[in-house]
Amino acid sequence: MSETFRVGTRGSALATTQTGWAAQKLSEISGLNVETVLVKTEGDVVTGSLATLGGTGVFAAALRQHLLDSGCDLAVHSLKDLPTAQPEGLVLSCIPAREDVRDALCSHDGLGLADLPQGAKIGTGSPRRGAQLLAHRPDLEIVDIRGNVPTRLGRVKGIGETLDDGSVGRGTQGDLDAVILAAAGMRRLGLEKYITEYLDPSIMLPAPGQGALALETRTAGSGHAALDQALADFDDEATRLQVVAERSLLSTLEAGCAAPIGALAHLEGDELVLEAVACNPDGSQTMRRSARTVAAGISSAQQLGRDLATAMIADGAAVIAGLA
């Protein structure tokens, strides 16, 4: 009988969908069976905005502890939710090819960002999204929201009643003109039809690591040689270089995943290009910079992120973003 590896996940629809996809791929590559272990995290049980929860790592801590305690062999995270400091005893063994990096506008009546009425109410739990929206359209009203993807969608006028899986929370009302969600999560959940507009990174740079999954094991390995090899085979080098640069910038800025910082790296020929933005939370000031380097491996990607962040700090980015 084939060996079985255990993969830990949060219980939300998005988390279990992402975990199921990654686990199935690894099972196919390794020939091992898979068992899913649901872990309740602080971010799932505490109410309040992500910013007030501290943001960084609030969804990951319990999952990581379960992994350290050998309650599972592998944990699957949304990379953008992970703190930049890697805990002792754990390693990001695999970062698969990235999904869509963009943020998505989901609005009533199919209205694009430019078409939304003056003073439209836009829901987001992200200071980064709110700040960039206000920088682009200062007239908008940003409403802080939390909850899973269907619950957030249910806040939009005319969308709640079309969600037919019973997943919209009780008390949800169409009190918003639109919400902003990660395109990757919408696509993974098969909810792309609710996306009105994919927001171009020239308007809204995504969170560092957005669209990427992080597959984490104990430093000593998963306990299954075939799974360890599958993780190595499933890793995507281009995606890893990009997210390493983005997260290195975030780390150097000493900003958590709830900070108003956007970053996006991409490969251009043999060069790695990194764009970043630091915003005042009210959108009144933004600093946008870019830098590039020869893509010569992980250390060059880390250095690119550090150098760009250092230059931005020298120009006042920490003050603008409220990090100083």
Rank of each mutant, 00 (worst) to 15 (best):
A232Y: 04
G11T: 15
Q18E: 06
R306G: 00
L116K: 09
V149F: 12
G31I: 01
V46S: 15
A238M: 07
S290A: 08
A225W: 09
A184I: 01
L253W: 06
A314S: 15
L53M: 15
L38S: 15
G305E: 04
L176Y: 06
A182S: 07
G211I: 00
V58W: 12
L191V: 04
L74T: 13
N280I: 00
G169I: 08
C279S: 12
L264A: 00
E237Y: 09
A182L: 00
A309S: 08
S290L: 05
E42I: 05
N280D: 04
I313E: 11
S126P: 01
G169L: 11
L250P: 04
D103K: 04
T84L: 01
A309W: 12
I313D: 11
D73F: 15
L111E: 06
I320F: 06
A114Y: 13
A60R: 06
G283A: 06
W21P: 01
T239R: 14
G221K: 09
R289L: 01
Q303R: 14
R240E: 09
L67Y: 14
G31Y: 03
R288L: 00
L213D: 04
L250I: 05
V168A: 14
A295N: 10
A311T: 11
R188G: 00
A263G: 13
C106N: 09
I159P: 05
A61K: 15
E141I: 12
R187T: 03
S248Y: 02
P208N: 10
G316F: 10
A184M: 00
T124C: 01
